[in-house]
Amino acid sequence: MLELNHIRKVYNPGLVTEMCIFDDFSLSVKDKEFVSIVGSNGSGKTSLLNIICGSIPVDKGEITVNGQRINSLEEFKRYRRIGRVYQNPALGTCPNMTMLENLSLADNKGKRFGLSRGTNYKRKDYYREQLAALGLGLENKMDVKLGSLSGGQRQAVALVMATLTPIDFLILDEHTAALDPKTAEIIMELTDKVVKEKNLTAIMVTHNLRYAVEYGSRLLMMDKGHIVLDKEGEEKQALVVDDILHLFNQISIECGN
């Protein structure tokens, strides 16, 4: 169970550019929930993910995981239990390292990075299997540097890397936004598969309303740092794109978009 209690976050306090992104924001995410978050630009979606991961500190409020307060836990330590895929495919992989080296790095997450051999050839078949499951033919590119792959291919590898070791949370930050529609579809299906297979708690920010409706067990719509729509269970399953599109348009018009 992940809980955010009475979070307050102000950017640039005391300056002309001061912006209050959250004021008394609360959210709780149950274990094994797959939450899709939609909302217009500036509604606080990505800030929310950054607060959960510890990339930005909060001014007030409490972040807890299973009742334990993690406010002061450093960002890199929080990632012991979190996997994250970014909007930019370049952020999830090392461009100048080979597929095997990238996967070996990801495979060692949570363990010590000591002076033992970095790539484990015994695990190569396992990596191949994981890549083959993507159906993109990447299993034959073990010695290729990631920088020479396309954005979609890199994002698929990033997804595999983020979920290679046991984690509790998967954070997806508009991870299909930079991809063409067909590749985005493939990545989205893969994401759904991985979340179900590994029983992960997932939080996905997306601009694609259809993905938010089709995938996941819970849907949140955010506006100016508040949750304006929260549907789960059968209510969520009954949602169609038009329902939320209507609400989304209302919000956007208010904002002048």
Partner: peptide, 24 residues
Amino acid sequence: KTKNGMLLRATGDNATLVTTLAQD
């Protein structure tokens, strides 16, 4: 070629990834 050496190379290549690998 060691784990530590690979992490060092990754730090220059993609520091964000090092953080998501739960390393400082």
